[in-house]
């Protein structure tokens, strides 16, 4: 009888602890933040892969760190600042807007403006 009970308990425990998620969040919003953050951070040792999808062990460590920081209540900006201070801007797939990336961010807009001006002038000549 005791054995039988134990077996039942054992079965139940399996049912309860089955298939644990790697990252447990208290709400959907945290989960979404975690997903967005890891998708937009670069795995530092891979050729060109983000943290969410990389299988490298460094990426797994960083994922864990991001996870811990999210559940301890840090904001996205705090986490990004921390990672940038340690690994530099290389880790960000969205480069920050500063003097070094001015051309990168303004370039497409300028090209579009030039194109439109060119178009306008071409059409006015008619």
């Amino acid at each position: 009888m005791k054995k039988f009970l134990f077996l039942i308990l054992f079965l139940f425990s399996v049912a309860i602890f089955a298939a644990e998620d790697f990252y447990n969040f208290s709400n959907k919003e945290q989960e979404k933040r975690f997903r967005d953050l890891t998708l937009n951070l670069r795995c530092l040792v891979c050729q060109n892969q983000n943290l969410a999808e990389s299988n490298a062990s460094l990426a797994a460590d960083l994922r864990q760190q991001v996870y811990q920081k999210i559940i301890s209540g840090e904001s996205d900006q705090q986490i990004i600042d921390y990672l940038v201070s340690r690994y530099g801007n290389f880790i960000l797939y969205r480069p920050p807007f500063n003097t070094k990336t001015l051309v990168l961010w303004a370039g497409p807009f300028l090209v579009l403006c030039f194109g439109m001006i060119f178009l306008w002038r071409a059409l006015r000549k008619r």
Binding site: N40, F90, Y93, K100, T101, L112
Partner: peptide, 19 residues
């Protein structure tokens, strides 16, 4: 030798997608 940066999906989502 200025800086090592990454340009990835968030950049293209911001700039390319509206186009």
């Amino acid at each position: 030798n200025i800086e090592k940066i990454s340009v990835g999906e968030p950049y293209f989502n911001t700039v390319f997608t509206p186009l």
